[in-house]
Measured scan of single mutants.
Amino acid sequence: EKTLKIVADSEEEAEALAKELAEKYNLEVTIERNPEEEGKYVITIKIKP
Rank of each mutant, 00 (worst) to 15 (best):
E13N: 04
L27D: 02
A8S: 05
P35M: 11
E28P: 14
K19A: 08
E32T: 12
A22E: 04
N26R: 10
E1C: 15
T30V: 10
S10M: 01
L17E: 01
T44S: 05
V42F: 13
E1K: 08
L4K: 03
A18Y: 06
E12Y: 07
L4T: 04
T44E: 03
N26G: 11
E28K: 09
E11V: 12
E1L: 13
A8W: 02
E32Q: 08
K5M: 13
I45C: 14
E13C: 12
K48V: 09
N26K: 14
S10A: 01
E13K: 07
Y41I: 04
I43Q: 00
E38I: 09
K24N: 06
K46E: 04
E20P: 02
G39R: 04
T30Q: 06
K2E: 12
T30H: 08
R33Q: 11
Y25S: 02
R33H: 07
K5V: 13
I43H: 00
L17K: 05
I6L: 07
E37V: 10
G39P: 03
E15W: 15
N34P: 07
I47C: 13
E38H: 14
N34F: 09
E23M: 14
P49K: 09
I45R: 00
V42E: 03
E13V: 07
K40T: 11
G39F: 06
I45N: 01
V42W: 15
E11P: 07
E20D: 06
R33N: 07
I43R: 00
E15P: 00
E23H: 12
E1F: 05
E37Q: 10
T3Q: 05
A18R: 07
E1A: 13
P49D: 09
V7P: 12
K48W: 11
A14N: 00
K2N: 13
L17M: 11
E13R: 05
K46Y: 15
L21V: 03
A14D: 00
A16D: 03
I45T: 02
I43K: 00
V42I: 13
L17G: 00
E13W: 07
E15H: 12
D9W: 13
S10H: 02
V7M: 11
V42H: 03
T3W: 13
S10C: 04
V29T: 05
P35R: 07
A8D: 00
K40L: 04
T3P: 07
L21G: 00
Y41C: 03
A18G: 05
E15G: 05
V29G: 02
A16P: 00
I45W: 05
D9Q: 08
L21N: 01
T44H: 06
I43E: 00
A18H: 02
A22K: 08
E11D: 03
T3K: 06
E20K: 15
R33F: 08
E20L: 14
V29H: 02
Y25W: 08
A16W: 12
A8Q: 02
I43L: 13
N26A: 08
L4P: 02
K5Q: 10
T30E: 06
E20R: 15
E28H: 12
K46G: 03
G39C: 09
L27R: 05
E11F: 14
N26E: 03
E32R: 07
K2M: 12
P49A: 12
S10G: 03
E15R: 15
T30C: 07
I45F: 05
E38W: 11
I31S: 01
K48Q: 10
K19T: 06
L21C: 04
R33P: 11
K19D: 02
T3A: 05
K48G: 09
K48M: 08
P35C: 08
I47G: 04
E1G: 14
I47V: 09
K2I: 14
V42Y: 09
E28W: 08
I47D: 03
N34H: 15
E28T: 12
K24G: 03
E15M: 15
E13Q: 10
K5S: 09
K19G: 03
K40N: 04
E32F: 12
L27W: 10
T3N: 04
I47K: 04
S10F: 02
K2F: 06
A14C: 03
K5Y: 15
E1H: 14
R33L: 08
A16C: 11
L21F: 11
I47E: 04
E11W: 14
A8G: 02
E11A: 11
E28G: 03
V29A: 07
T3H: 06
V7Y: 15
V42S: 03
L27K: 03
I45Q: 01
R33S: 08
E1P: 14
E36S: 12
E20V: 14
K48Y: 13
G39Q: 04
E11K: 14
V7W: 13
D9R: 06
E32G: 05
G39L: 03
E28D: 09
E20Q: 12
Y41L: 03
K24C: 14
S10Y: 02
K46F: 15
E32H: 10
A22I: 11
L27I: 07
K48I: 10
K19N: 06
E37G: 09
E20M: 15
S10D: 03
E38P: 15
Y25H: 03
K5N: 05
I31H: 01
P49W: 15
K40P: 03
E36K: 12
E38D: 10
Y25R: 01
A16V: 07
E23K: 15
T44A: 03
I47Q: 05
E11R: 14
R33I: 10
L21Q: 01
E12N: 05
K24I: 08
I47A: 05
P35I: 09
E12Q: 09
A16Q: 08
N26W: 08
T30D: 04
I6F: 15
L21H: 02
V42R: 03
Y25C: 08
V29S: 04
K40S: 09
P35E: 09
T30Y: 13
L17C: 07
K19Q: 07
T30L: 08
D9P: 03
Y41K: 01
K5G: 02
A16K: 12
K46H: 12
V42C: 04
E13Y: 06
K40M: 04
I6P: 00
R33K: 13
E23I: 12
E36N: 14
E38M: 10
T3G: 04
E1Q: 14
A14V: 02
D9A: 07
K24A: 07
V29R: 00
E38F: 12
V29I: 08
I43N: 00
A16F: 09
Y41F: 11
E28N: 10
V42L: 08
N34R: 07
E23C: 15
N34Y: 13
A14P: 00
E32N: 07
E32C: 10
E36M: 11
V7L: 10
K48F: 11
P49N: 13
A8P: 00
S10L: 02
K24Y: 06
I43W: 02
E38N: 13
A14R: 00
T44I: 13
E15Y: 15
I6D: 00
V29W: 15
K5E: 06
E36Y: 13
N34Q: 07
R33A: 13
E28F: 10
K2C: 13
V29E: 00
